[in-house]
Design a protein around this nucleic acid. Sequence first.
DNA 1: AAGTCTGACAACCGCGAGGAG
DNA 2: TCTCCTCGCGGTTGTCAGACT
Length: 294
Amino acid sequence: MGRRPCCAKEGLNRGAWSSREDKILVNYVKLHGEGKWRDLPQKAGLKRCGKSCRLRWLNYLRPDIKRGNISEDEEELIIRMHGLLGNRWSLIAGRLPGRTDNEIKNYWNTNLSKKAQEQKSGGGGGDNTGKRSSNNELEVKESNVRSHEVIRTKAVRCTRVLIPLLKTGYENNPGGTTAVTSLQSSPSCSSVRPEESHEGSGGLRLPQSPDFLTEFNVDDLLLSYAENPEIHFQSEQDRSDDLDIMLEAVEDDTVDAKGGLESWGTDELFNSNGCFDFNVLSSFLNEDNGSDTK
DNA sequence: AAGTCTGACAACCGCGAGGAG
DNA sequence: TCTCCTCGCGGTTGTCAGACT
């Protein structure tokens, strides 16, 4: 059976949106909320495909959209994330508040990919009329990024892994809470319910309930790590090795194939200081890799 | 001044994942 | 369990403005 077209193409407006259409869409979404995009055009009185409405809203009309110049910090983060994740624009965008995947994708394609290409070919020379920082500045930044390029043409989804928090994990920690340093800047990590969390100077802390089933997202873990590359590792080599292992595991979907980290308890995942131990996790992935890869 | 080229970004398209029935 | 539908994603194309010849 063929795919049903997302909408009848006849009689629909295409191309650039008029301000009147924008206003209608904004008003409708304000009134009824997002979702039900297929029905939206008809109900709102727009001669547009639902998909087009969704895209227009998400990429342009949302109130929290940040438009205009991408800062150097943002650029640096994009480069680093792209090095880790490849063309997974939505994930990268998730780390840049107010930025859309489309915007980042465009920015990469028009500005950064070229620079990265030059970097790769060892050139870097020539007179690149980048509108922002100079080439040299970018070179310095990119030299801090892993040289291991992971560019995928198609995104590989990372599944969530469930890590049951065993009672012993709490008992081992007299403070009653367990620091998870490497997750501290992971806004989308669902391991802590806001009402149960205890934010302290040591970073994000897990809830007190021993029965709480926490959910780690491998992507979040990676991204948090990418944002805090200095944590937990004695040397740059350690850091680089472990990250390679982690990335390989995610790429191979071995985390998923093995049923994730479901069998793990906090006593194994956290070190003696109660900190989340990335080394332990990566060694798990390493074992997994050895037995399960292609 | 007119034509062409190029860069930037908005919009479109097809596909796959996941959920509902 | 299966089918169908919706949504979200990433790749690609279209359009426009500014630079260049």
